[in-house]
Design a binder for these strands. Structure first.
Lengths: 191, 191
DNA sequence: AAGAAACCTGAACGATGATTCAAAAATAAG
DNA sequence: CTTATTTTTGAATCATCGTTCAGGTTTCTT
């Protein structure tokens, strides 16, 4: 068991260091040496664990996607009505665990770089499709069919835009405030 | 006069090539050689005109910002009411000249990289501030004061999100459709 | 036409950074 | 305490790319 443990601990540490380092320096500019320094390790050890820089980035993105999935499932469980489930989707995106400047920042970095990396693109596409079908399914229970697609697009664009703005923010962001604003947007969209 | 002309022509050509090349390969990955090839020139000549890669990128961003400014001024002139001027702001963002996949794509690239380049960051900040105050000013004429800021944020996030989505699109995007959707969003936000 | 100015490029330079590797250090097993 | 296994890293390798520069070509001026 101890065997498995150390590997997991290192993985976790290196991924956290990656988030911080990428936020500080930018996805494309950050070097293995910088990430290693952030984690108190050496560049060579990162390759030992992740095989390559791209492997590290993919693992980091998986880490964030897992967080999002968990937040989503959690909120979905409690929700009863379609509208509450819509709220839950928004709340997952703006949950305390996810909606921080470094994470929004790195998310944007992945966004911008996904089209040029097949491995990132694949993860990105899967996530996007999943969120889309969730939102669409709930909207279909509330709005007439011809309004669903417009509303879905508006809500998803709004979510993306909020993340983008958060990524640029120079001070800390407030997740609770973001959730309240998102609820208002949902309400408007459904009116 | 002929002196000035050639320089302008080359600048234009190189910037267009930059947009295409960055869209194809990504801001951080694209090389001077690739951009040069796209323009049918040599990497050295780009340095002759723009001094450095960063200079080229800055010029390209200025080019896009100028386009946006022009589209905005144009629409503003015709608009009479505050609501029409709001439409005009949205329409500028989704004008035929700007709302294409390569341009949204490169815009997103600049977005993601601006925080790490003082020269890009400066341009980016100026533009963002300008759009924000325009939207805020128009909303202040329509909505009660306490709703202005929420509405402004919602509209701006929406615009950003639409660009982001367009940047990821694999097929061509339709500017007219985007404008119509944007008008609907404005209407909902004001309701 | 001849000289000057602008324009262009191939080749060389210099710096950087991901990855590999051999060997050391730490840890576990017997 | 040995031996085996896992973990770690400094140094070497290898490749890439932005930039410079010297010299050539074209365009303009007179």
């Amino acid at each position: 068991m101890g065997r498995k443990r150390i590997r997991d601990i290192r993985n976790e540490e290196l991924i956290e260091a990656t988030i911080v380092a990428v936020h500080k320096r930018g996805y494309s500019v950050v070097t293995m040496a910088e990430i290693a320094q952030e984690a108190g390790a050496s560049a060579a050890s990162i390759n030992y664990y992740f095989g390559s820089k791209e492997g590290l980035m993919e693992a980091t993105m998986r880490h964030l996607l897992r967080k999002l999935r968990i937040a989503m499932i959690e909120g979905y469980g409690a929700a009863q009505t379609p509208k509450e489930r819509l709220y839950a989707v928004m709340d997952a995106n703006f949950s305390d665990a996810l909606f921080t400047v470094p994470q929004c920042s790195i998310w944007m970095q992945f966004w911008a770089n996904a089209p040029y990396s097949p491995r990132l693109a694949r993860l990105h596409r899967i996530n996007r499709t999943r969120v889309r079908s969730h939102v669409r399914a709930e909207l279909a229970n509330i709005l007439p069919a011809e309004r669903v697609e417009t509303a879905r697009s508006a809500l998803q664009c709004y979510m993306d835009g909020v993340w983008l703005e958060a990524a640029q923010s120079e001070s800390a962001v407030n997740a609770e405030t973001a959730r309240q604003a998102a609820h208002q947007v949902v309400d408007l969209t459904l009116s």
